[in-house]
């Protein structure tokens, strides 16, 4: 998973429209994959740190909890129905979004496109 988050970090820095969309986004997001925690810290749209958990001390604003198989399907070039969007995970019972959802919704296009950056990447 760390490799994929590193890929996201590098690709995001080379994607000007996402940096513009995320310019007001400075938050830590918890991504939990098969129970493993990853804390992604964003600063003005840049992904500045990815820290593996578990941690009870790291504050986060919202969390996406999902299984790895669902994420792999999400990252296919043409995902199956339900795996084509992070809210699809919730709808089909393969994921959960919690925490400060409004913060997510205010930055929804940014966050969705950041999460989709590995789409089509070999090995994702």
């Amino acid at each position: 998973m760390i490799d994929i988050f590193t890929h996201i970090q590098k690709t995001l820095d080379q994607t000007p429209h996402l940096l513009r969309l995320g310019r007001l986004f400075s938050e830590t997001v918890l991504i939990e994959v098969d129970g493993e925690e990853f804390y992604l810290t964003f600063e003005k749209g840049h992904l500045v740190a990815v820290v593996e958990g578990p941690s009870r001390k790291t504050p986060w604003s919202f969390a996406l909890r999902v299984d790895r198989d669902a994420l792999d399907k999400f990252w296919q070039p043409l995902p199956e129905p339900g795996f084509h969007d992070i809210f699809g995970f919730v709808k089909i019972g393969r994921g959960r979004v919690d925490g400060d959802i409004l913060k997510l919704v205010k930055n929804l296009r940014f966050f969705k496109e950041v999460m989709a950056l590995p789409r089509g990447m070999k090995g994702a």
Binding site: P77, L78, P79, H84, D85, I86, F87, G88, V105, K106, L108, R109, K112
Partner: peptide, 18 residues
């Protein structure tokens, strides 16, 4: 916040990757 931008980001969940 901009309701239109948030609404668009939400309903994009309903658009096919095709």
């Amino acid at each position: 916040a901009h309701g239109g931008e948030m609404g668009a980001a939400l309903v994009s969940a309903n658009i096919s990757p095709y």
